[in-house]
């Protein structure tokens, strides 16, 4: 096994594109995955649920990063596509489809919607595209509300627990593994996507779409493909979310969540799969941590409750601004710096 290289010995372009240049990464990832697999054995159900949520938002954030970070197409409709996946899953699961079928089908439904709402990307760019995707968000959100209100609208779409061959994958522990496996598959699929012709085409479009067209890339087709891949990821995230929470309601899939998704990839690092993972983790854990902290502080000092509740949002905003100012390249870049430092550690060079 080779753990580190003391120089650049790459002789082929393929070497540049390897995911693991040496065995250190492989070992670390294997250890990390093993560690994550043991979590439900010793963590409380609440913390397992938090990790489940992190896994779900990692899938969603990786998807958005393919579109926004790597293809350069901004989207404000990501949460709507996630909602579409969640609603599709709810209906499919009620129809009796097993979860391993319902999740990809929900992804496909979202992908189709993503391709449809991506059509304006041929003509409009930047802020204008942001508004066009905002339309997708508003339209789908309205549709969710209409769906919720059918038949009086006094109940939510409820999703039965996932089962695998008679075994109930309970929401507290076992479903976590479904999320873990899906997240790992999603991450590896995304990493490999960028080693293919498709991934390179995405990057070319992001860097300059006219140059990409001149090189013979069908810009429109690849933009739509990027939209649908991204929406597929969002749909899968929505499907997992539907199973994890048991009810699907329009209240979750608002514009706020789309903005949170953008915050995830900005905090994590645009165009980086690792960035999506780190960003999704931070943006999921941070509000939850702040909530627990605020709850605890108001237990200790009850007279200042309203202050702590309001501070939660202010602190959240401050942390995001802090990231943008101090880590403009995102957490992924910080990780690269750390890695580079340890590459030659303990020797300087």
């Amino acid at each position: 096994m080779q753990f580190s290289a003391c120089g650049n010995y790459k002789t082929r372009y393929v070497d540049e594109a390897t995911i693991f240049p040496n065995d250190t990464g492989r070992v670390l990832v294997a250890v990390l995955l093993l560690f994550l697999a043991t979590l439900p054995l010793w963590l409380s159900p609440y913390l397992v649920f938090v990790f489940t949520l992190i896994g779900i938002f990692i899938v969603g954030a990786v998807g958005l990063n393919i579109l926004t970070g790597s293809t350069g197409q901004i989207s404000l409709g990501h949460s709507a596509f996630m909602g579409l996946g969640a609603y599709a899953t709810g209906l499919l699961a009620q129809a009796g489809l097993p979860f391993w079928l319902a999740i990809p089908v929900a992804g496909a439904v979202a992908a189709a919607a993503g391709a449809f709402f991506g059509i304006p990307s041929l003509r409009v760019k930047g802020l204008y595209l942001a508004l066009a995707t905002l339309a997708a968000q508003v339209i789908l959100q309205f549709a969710f509300n209409l769906f919720d209100s059918r038949g009086g609208g006094t109940s939510y779409l409820s999703v039965p627990q996932a089962t695998l061959g008679g075994l109930v994958l309970d929401r507290e522990r076992l479903f976590y593994y479904v999320v873990l496996v899906t997240a790992v598959l999603a991450v590896f699929a995304a990493l490999n996507l960028f080693r293919t012709r498709i991934g390179r085409a995405f990057t070319a479009i992001r860097d300059n779409d006219r140059a990409a067209a001149a090189m013979g890339i069908n810009v429109f087709a690849y933009k739509l493909l990027s939209f649908s891949i991204s929406a597929f990821y969002a749909g899968v995230a929505g499907a997992l979310w539907a199973y994890a929470s048991g009810v699907v309601s329009a209240e979750r899939f608002t514009l706020l969540l789309s903005v949170e998704y953008l915050a995830m990839i900005i905090v994590g690092g645009l165009g980086s799969v690792l960035g999506s993972i780190l960003g999704a983790t931070v943006i999921t854990v941070l509000p939850e941590g702040l909530r627990v902290a605020a709850d605890y502080m108001s237990q200790v000092l009850p007279q200042a409750t309203h202050l702590f509740l309001a501070m939660r949002f202010a602190v959240f905003g401050l942390i995001i601004v802090g990231f943008l100012m101090l880590e403009p390249q995102g957490l992924a870049d910080r990780w690269r710096v750390i890695k580079t430092y340890f590459n030659t550690w303990p020797f300087r060079y």
Binding site: Y46, F49, V50, S245, E251, Q299
Partner: peptide
């Protein structure tokens, strides 16, 4: 009494209930 603010969000309420029950 342990309590939390759910922001009128069903998912937050569910997460909070799981926290209160298990912790």
């Amino acid at each position: 009494l342990v309590w939390t603010d759910d922001q009128y969000n069903p998912q937050t309420a569910l997460t909070a209930l799981r926290r209160f029950v298990s912790e």
